[in-house]
Design a protein around this nucleic acid. Sequence first.
DNA 1: TACCCTGTGTTGGAAAAACAACATATATAC
DNA 2: GTATATATGTTGTTTTTCCAACACAGGGTA
Lengths: 221, 221
Amino acid sequence: MKMVQILQTSTLFAGTTADEIASLLQCLEGRTDDYERDWAIIKEGDHTDELGIVLTGRVHITRHDFWGNRSLVADVAVGESFAEALACTALPSEVSVVTAERSTILFLNVHKIVASCQKCCLYHHTLIENMVRLLSQKNLELMKKIDHLTKRSTRDKLLSYLNSESRRQQNRTFTIPFDRQQLADYLCVERSAMSTELSRMQADGLVEYRRREFTLHHEEF
Amino acid sequence: MKMVQILQTSTLFAGTTADEIASLLQCLEGRTDDYERDWAIIKEGDHTDELGIVLTGRVHITRHDFWGNRSLVADVAVGESFAEALACTALPSEVSVVTAERSTILFLNVHKIVASCQKCCLYHHTLIENMVRLLSQKNLELMKKIDHLTKRSTRDKLLSYLNSESRRQQNRTFTIPFDRQQLADYLCVERSAMSTELSRMQADGLVEYRRREFTLHHEEF
DNA sequence: TACCCTGTGTTGGAAAAACAACATATATAC
DNA sequence: GTATATATGTTGTTTTTCCAACACAGGGTA
């Protein structure tokens, strides 16, 4: 798929035509870069003024504590973006951004997005409004993640996550972007305990699964 | 303290003079409202186009699951704001906003903030940039909260929270805005287990506390 | 002063999660 | 196809959290 087509599905460029996007990209001086799998695009402590939009592949937002425990904060798929908030502040990053597959990323300087731009393009104001919408959306997504973590038991965390994923993909049968270890890191539970709980849930008829493909049987939440 | 002085400390009006704020408030058609303690300003399921800025008092962002378990998402003090992201989307709220004390709130319509405004005020662009900064800041705060919840043990959650609060108040001795039950709801643990863990931490010399006043003894993280 | 109310700390038993070690299945490379 | 590496599931033990019930302290009030 061509870059412009992907961008039209993104929140940042929502409601703009292909021509307008082309014009905006020039104005914003965007750049693209390719990465192998497991490459750290941003490391903890880094700073950047650019947000990233995934054109191909997939990236994960991760964190490590002092004892080396990994936690997986978020999954970013094609057309989605990362580091918007980081790029809008002067602070160092508290998270890493790592490719989960070989990926192509478009980088855009947020200051060029937000700054008023008299000369170049008429569509710039749409872009600023989209930037506000994008940040709001991320905000609500983080809320949703907090919602999963708020659940006290492993089962409730799993149900909360699986239901939100089912709703997002608008299907009771869906594929998750994580393997078991990554899912455990995402929900902040222990992998083997989580596997055990998944088995119990399947035995209880709540869910069926095979590898990354899940089918929810009861509508919960 | 006068409203304009409080607003000058807020992220949204950062870098604007008192006169500019007065002009902007007219342009934005802001309104204020007073609330008794424990009043629900926003209920789960509600929608609004207005963000709120706390002028006096304090509000809490809360959530309830199906079994009635309360979770306390965030504390919002004077000069801080809430519902920015909600007001930027068309979605119903997943959280409630409840006064923790008798409070006065300034409400501002986000569309009026974000919309370009040719006629009225020159400072409007600063406002839009501040809106982006505000949303980014909220974003990073949510990240910080996720960071606390990511910790597996009650002790680590407490240390993570107490350290961040200590750093925020730039003092090893500080007062938290929660009673024990609220703190437990905020960290998503059980109150009595948390009390027990606090005792152990005090016995271990990590921390001293009396009611809401804490003193950290070791710099961790 | 005596009384209540609320917040906080303590305890012991029940339940759940973490941990470690291993078994099985699947994918990949040769 | 076989070998190898990786992903997933299982089991038994240890540790932690949850829960319920109660004890205690301090503040406010009659």
